[in-house]
Structures are given as structure tokens and as C-alpha cells.
Simulated assay, not measured.
Amino acid sequence: MPELPDVEGFREVLRSCGTGRRITAVDVRDAGVLRGVTVRRLRRELVGRRLGEPRRHGKWLVAPTDGPTVVWHFGMTGLLMCASSDDPVAEHDRLVLVLDDDHRLRYRDQRKLQGVHLAGSDEAVGHILGDLGPDALGLPQVSFLERVAGRRGAVKNVLMDQSVLAGLGNLLSDEILWRARVAPSRPARDLDEAELRRIHAAMGRVLRSAVPTARVPPRRTWLTGRRDDPDPLCPRCGGPLRSDRTGGRRSVWCPACQD
């Protein structure tokens, strides 16, 4: 599932491919990815508009034009690509924005769990983003402590709750907690301040390393790089990793390193 680093990569794709260019056509290949907007309205509102500087909040990508704003959510399998007219369209390319200078922005999504919104104002953008918490990237420690301390539920579930922090998903949360030496099933309200500070510090390190790669990198020195091994071992202590379900999602952790 695309998480904060992936969507930051999509923001860069949109910035380099689209910023300052005019939308000359809107090719909706599958209306099943449209949310709250019809094909006709999307074309009417976007054709002739010039794309502005995009921004990201959590897992959402906000693409303003000199008219309405396109808001993207990538769900489990979505991605954004820059292409030219010569590049063949793939089976799961659901929406193509045709731009001047022979650029194409392609929204590809196999499962179509989320999709594309259109907002006519900043207020409408805020309504689409709803009750998202602050973006996890660069969040000050004091704000992190205020939002996480005392929360009910497992700490991993709290980290993935987009109303608490925006941008963290399954892989990032496991990686952060492994680095902080905190088990994903620990109740957040039972963590002391030192543990919460470790989690915040680990979050910053993980995001700063992951964002430039536009993904959660599967490095062998990271938990992420070992979690799918047949018999995964902890990159830190060499002991066996455990896998279980936390809040309906697969969690991987080291029982020797994380308590």
C-alpha cells in the first residue's frame, strides 16, 4: 500500500511532469476511480486548466490548477506515472491527463479502492481530506507526544490512525517500532515518555531515509528487508522474527528486541 514516501514520490512525478503545463484532454478509461465527480464534469472543469505546484498531506496528493483542484488517494495499489504519447497504455491505467509538450499523467490502480476527487475551493479540499491529523514528516516531538500519549489501543494501530498522524501505514509502523524497540501490540497509554520519544526519533529517521527513495526501502539492514524471507531473522540481533495480526494487519517484530 502506498505510504508517505510513495506519495511524496508521486508528488515529485506530478511536479516534474505537470507543473505549469496545460491539460489538453482528460481520458477517463475507468470511471470506477472517480469519487464524487462525473466523467463529464471532470472533463469540463479540467480541460484548458494549467497545473500548479502540488502538495502532499499524509497519503493524499493535492494537485491545484488555475481552476479546481484534483485530490488523489492511492489506496492499496494506486500510483502516478509520467509518460509520453508513444508509451503504451497499461491494463490498469484508469485515468490519463493529457498535457501539452506531449506529457501524460497516468493514474494506474489495479484494485480501485480509492481514487480521484475534484474540489472547487480550498474549503472543498479540506472537506475531502476530512479529519486527517498532522503530517508525520517533520512533526515536532512535543506535538507527537500530545497526540499519541494516553491513546487507547495498540501503539501500532495508533500510529496508523490517520486522524492521529497522517502518512504512516503498515510497513512504516513496523519499521519505526522495531527501531524504537517497542512491540506493536503494546497499549499506547502504557508507554512512558522515554519510549514515546524513541518512537518519535525512529519515525524521523525512517522517513528521512525513505522519502528520497519514494518507497519504504527493502534494505537488509531494515526490518522491511527481512519481513518476507521464508524464515526471517532480525537484522539487529539475528533472532527469529514473529508475525501476527494487529488491528487486522500483518505485524512483524522481534520478540527479543521489542518489549
Rank of each mutant, 00 (worst) to 15 (best):
K112A: 10
R108G: 03
G126E: 09
L99Y: 05
P68Q: 03
D101F: 03
H117P: 08
V125Q: 02
R55C: 06
H73G: 00
G126I: 00
K112H: 02
G130M: 03
R55M: 08
L113F: 15
G130N: 01
V89G: 12
G78P: 05
L79R: 15
T77G: 08
V125C: 09
V116S: 11
T77F: 01
E123Q: 03
H103T: 03
C82M: 07
K59N: 05
K59G: 02
I128W: 03
R111F: 09
R104E: 10
D109H: 13
L113W: 14
D93Y: 02
P140E: 02
G133C: 04
L137K: 13
P88N: 09
R50S: 13
G48N: 12
H92S: 10
Q110C: 07
A90T: 07
R108C: 09
K112I: 04
L132G: 11
A90Q: 08
M76L: 15
Q110R: 08
R94Q: 14
K112P: 11
L118D: 01
D131Q: 06
T77W: 10
D131C: 10
G130C: 07
V96S: 04
W72M: 13
V62K: 03
S84E: 15
R49E: 03
G58S: 08
L129C: 05
G138F: 00
D66S: 11
P68V: 08
P140F: 00
L95H: 05
R56S: 12
D135L: 13
R104V: 10
G67H: 04
A63H: 07
Q110H: 01
G115T: 13
L79N: 02
T65R: 02
M76N: 13
Y107A: 08
G130K: 00
R106W: 06
R50W: 00
D135Q: 11
D86C: 02
G138R: 03
A90D: 14
R94G: 04
L113M: 12
D101A: 13
G115V: 07
A83T: 11
R94V: 07
L79A: 14
D86K: 12
D86A: 15
D135T: 13
L113S: 08
L79Q: 12
L80M: 15
R106S: 02
G67V: 11
R94F: 08
A124C: 09
H127M: 06
H117W: 10
G133D: 07
L105F: 03
L132P: 05
H57C: 12
R106V: 13
T69E: 03
D131K: 09
P88I: 02
M81H: 10
L118V: 12
P68E: 02
T69A: 08
A136W: 04
Y107V: 10
D131R: 14
G48D: 10
R108W: 04
P134T: 05
F74S: 05
H57Q: 15
D87C: 07
L105T: 13
G75E: 04
R111G: 02
V62T: 04
D122K: 07
